[in-house]
Design a binder for these strands. Structure first.
Lengths: 314, 314
DNA sequence: TGATATATACTCACATTGAGTATAATATCA
DNA sequence: TGATATTATACTCAATGTGAGTATATATCA
């Protein structure tokens, strides 16, 4: 990946290549999954064709052809054109997208759908704070102490404390990108020491990805975690009918946190986001649950699913 | 596939040009201003140079050179590559940005700084609903009736009602883009009939712009109106010291709505976003006001300026 | 039968928010 | 000089929203 950036005489100054990168998300059996290629080493990406009508349609046709999934929701994430994004001297502009699709139980096992927490194990707080989180924090603390100037040290300490919810601060699941960036700066993830040498600090657990794809994934997760709080996008990930507990589990999978069951139902019902199908779920243990469907009519009415999700404290 | 290596030697197949477009905002004397070129006919834009480090740095250097302003805050808006964005057969990718800068009283009059409400007169509700708003709504209603199928007619009616706060619905200042798009679809803005002929419905007041620049401006305003509610970005538009009323006026200029003065102050103070400078403002009428400065340290702490702004009802 | 698991209804304390009243401190002008 | 306008700032209050918990209903399974 040597980016010479040298523009030869024959390449016009405005020659760029355009790439689309997708963070394609589904929730299967209560687990948040992301579509990957190359055995989980990269996000699916491909060139933006010259004959496509628009970026969005380019992404749609390409992803739908490749995965056989209809995309429910598509949203632009970010556009990069950093100098190291170049191949054969042609500089690449990468436009990343977040796309949501319905789960597909037949495909659940195979293909490239991976639990996104295998890339960010420290982000799953559904069973309390992960066991290795104290160790991560300890190593970040060590890194803050290695700062050269006191001001820098102070700044690092503050960022770590905010991002990881230290000193009585609450854990904020939306800060996933900030946490990843701290780990990157502290060279605790494999991507950070790529290309360099000697930097062999023991790494934090969690699978890495090629290029900056793990960073893009973090961006997508952050956007989604923020969005479910004020837009009814969870439903794009649900099957046509579902129980309220299944819906809750989907939200919890995305947020990486547990929500208060009774208050969650209150929220959903008072927003009139769903309606009963009349049928009941095949019993899965206790009292049978009603099946609901999403009231799609309500999408543009309800800008908000609720200012906040009813999270549980502990 | 980026991950698996690009094998094409033929550069022309993916030759794109890259353009940066800026929605550069300032607030001068309580008026929201946007930087324009060509006597207000377009947003400033320029090619992304091959030798720039990144998109963001490209935008910064270019805007700062062109306007002499230091950019306080920069945020990516959206990337377009629609087929009609082509020059000499070279397809153009446009990356739009929102950028905030401090007011500059010397420049207030000259240069291309224009009140953004000259492009969206119906968006300024600081002195109540604009006089011509009923007329706009009436013309949109007429357009809904012109729908061919009943379902379409119903859909249009609903969108108009939501976007313009009809039937008891509240006015939502963040829906500026949706409102503009409705006016575009109804061919009530000049841009809509460009290139076509015969479509000479009487237009709604408000200056138009070249290309889709007015749409990009609406996107930027929408983003900013949403952002001031949960991030302390207003301060990027303020001088180093200011009174609370000046701060309030800036917020009102952006939101296009009045806020409740006492509650606004309560919000600002309880969030500890500002501190007294010790000095007082040169009296401008009544009791002299304390001067405040923004506590920049607090930026990453306070993710939120308050879940909502304390708007006034009437 | 009772242990267990889920569904669902309701209560309650507390914080937040929208709105308004009251009072203080200055400038302006008749 | 004193009335009036204008802005600043401190409080109060009702309504609503939010976090948390209790209670009860309806299943399965040992």
């Amino acid at each position: 990946m040597t980016a010479t950036g040298r523009q030869s005489e024959d390449i016009p100054a405005h020659a760029f290549a355009a790439d689309l990168i997708a963070v394609l998300v589904a929730v299967t059996a209560g687990r948040p999954r992301v579509m990957t290629i190359d055995h989980g080493a990269a996000l699916p990406s491909g060139p933006f064709a010259h004959d496509e009508r628009s970026l969005q349609s380019g992404l749609r046709t390409w992803v739908e052809r490749q995965t056989g999934h209809r995309l429910g929701y598509v949203e632009q994430l970010y556009t990069f054109a950093d100098r190291d994004r170049a191949t054969n001297g042609v500089r690449v502009i990468s436009i990343s997208y977040l796309a949501l699709t319905r789960e597909n139980r037949e495909e659940a096992g195979k293909s490239g759908w991976l639990d996104w927490y295998s890339y960010f194990p420290w982000e799953d707080h559904r069973s309390g704070a992960p066991r290795h989180l104290p160790d991560i924090v300890a190593r970040l603390r060590a890194w803050t102490k290695a700062a050269t100037v006191p001001a820098q040290r102070h700044d690092r300490l503050r960022r770590v404390a905010i991002s990881f919810g230290l000193d009585g601060r609450p854990w904020n699941e939306e800060l996933i990108l900030q946490r990843y960036e701290l780990l990157y700066e502290a060279a605790l993830v494999a991507e950070a020491s790529r290309g360099r040498r000697g930097a062999d600090a023991p790494l934090v657990s969690g699978q890495s990805m090629a290029f900056d794809h793990r960073r893009i994934l973090a961006t997508g997760i952050a956007r989604l975690r923020a969005k479910i709080k004020y837009r009814p996008v969870v439903f794009e990930l649900m099957p046509p009918s579902f129980t309220l507990l299944e819906l809750q589990h989907a939200v919890e999978a995305l947020a990486g946190r547990l929500v208060h069951k009774q208050n969650f139902r209150r929220l959903i019902e008072q927003q009139e986001l769903v309606e009963e199908t009349g049928a009941m779920a095949a019993a899965t243990g206790g009292r049978p649950a009603k099946l609901f469907r999403f009231r799609r009519e309500v999408v543009d009415e309800r800008a908000v699913i609720g200012t906040k999700l009813p999270l549980t404290r502990a």
